[in-house]
Design a protein around this nucleic acid. Structure first.
Lengths: 234, 234
DNA sequence: GTTAACAAAATTGTCAACAATAAATTCATC
DNA sequence: GATGAATTTATTGTTGACAATTTTGTTAAC
């Protein structure tokens, strides 16, 4: 009984659609849900133990964030981003995240710094232990945490969406073992935070994002045969 | 029979939730819907001629963008942004829109420039004619069009959301007559576009956003007494 | 053996009735 | 006459059944 208050006597404490969305976000980030995966309503109902309506609302929210694609009368599928969309996502990240860095450096207290330090330690540990899922999730969370420190909920939501979509992009175009982030660059960022160097932090972030994008630019198409039509029709 | 294809023979061509969302966005931007306004489901059903389910989905999408606030068992209300949220919105705009400017300048064709020129002419005309709604809508659309020229759908969505929320912020904290934008600054921007000066365009945008924010910072609380509880409860 | 039409199954989309919660009105009491 | 409790009304939240569409599987014809 660590995670959720399961059905252990009293009410199962039905998950809200926001929580379901969050859970699917996580699954996508950890690449347990890959591009093209079908999300059937009944399966999700069983998985989360909620009614169909709740699921449909969650899927609508995910679709409005381009994490899920809703095909009329055919169901919901995890999005399969195109190269064009990948470009757009990285452009957006380069526009937003350096600025988040600047704000975060301004507003980071000693407590925040210590928190980031712990986070990085966990990241390294997961990496060393070969716990790929945990490593991926933590490296994604790092970017979101910067937005938290910047105290900007709008941007936090945006980063969450962009980080999740990046995971899909890597799933589509990255080599199978590709990590989402180089954790040493996160370490560099933390150093800039400690010294309160706004511009340096922003610059490191740009480089960091460039590296992630380069990783997927070079290696071509590693996606599985999900969209057979698109693959064989040209 | 100017506005909607009313039930005049064949199918009324039921609006999708995306279209309903768009219509409410527009109404908010034009300040026909003001902060705190109640959006009752039955009223919306009548207004758009669709079933309750469609409306509920549209409201959920609007709530996920912080345009609407869903109070449990009490209904949907147009959001009443706080000063804190206003700060976050402007921070986000300053982070994103200058970068959109840079990309848009890079990618603007002669056609795009001509299109912006026409748009600005319409803006000025609406201003001169005293057509406030049209003026507000067009000045908001201008910012979205830059994202269109930059060819980035993610950022376009973000700007659309942020522009709409800005209208709410002005409705809350701006003096009654306050315009959303100084259209002369839009003109300045267009000049930078013509000369393909990326950095200058970006800089003008920053100044432009600063001006809009300054307008709401100085003038304090002009909001109507919608949330009586909040006003008298402390 | 292959293709086309047809039938069956499964899944999604929609609607309408019902339950639950909050607001408004009425009534009784102080 | 004013305050507080109880009832009524209205609005939202949820569930279930039904309709529409797509997909799968089968059969028949070429």
């Amino acid at each position: 009984m660590s995670n959720v208050a399961e059905n252990s006597g009293t009410h199962p404490a039905a998950l809200s659609e926001a929580e379901i969305v969050e859970r699917i976000y996580d699954a996508v980030i950890e690449q347990r849900l890959r591009p093209g995966a079908k999300l059937s309503e009944s399966a999700l109902c069983d998985a989360f133990g909620v009614g169909r309506m709740r699921i449909r609302r969650a899927l609508l929210l995910l679709a409005s964030r381009d994490i899920v694609e809703l095909r009329s009368n055919r169901g919901a599928y995890i999005s399969t981003p195109s190269r064009e969309q990948a470009r757009e996502v990285f452009e957006a990240r380069r526009a937003i995240e350096p600025n988040i860095c600047r704000l975060a450096v301004q507003r980071a207290t000693a407590k925040h710094i210590a928190h980031l330090e712990t986070h990085l330690k966990d990241e390294r540990q997961a990496q060393d232990l070969g716990d790929r899922r945990q490593a991926i999730r933590l490296s994604g969370r790092f970017h979101v945490k910067l937005a938290e420190i910047a105290v900007n909920h709008v941007m936090e939501r945006m980063v969450k969406e962009l980080v999740t979509r990046t995971s899909l992009i890597i799933g589509m175009f990255g080599a199978p073992g590709t990590a989402n982030c180089h954790e040493d660059e996160h370490t560099l960022l933390l150093q800039a935070f400690k010294q309160k160097h706004e511009e340096e932090a922003a610059q490191i972030m740009v480089t960091h994002l460039d590296h992630i994008e380069a990783q997927i630019d070079l290696t071509s198409d590693y996606r599985e045969s999900v969209d057979l039509v698109e693959i064989f029709n040209n």
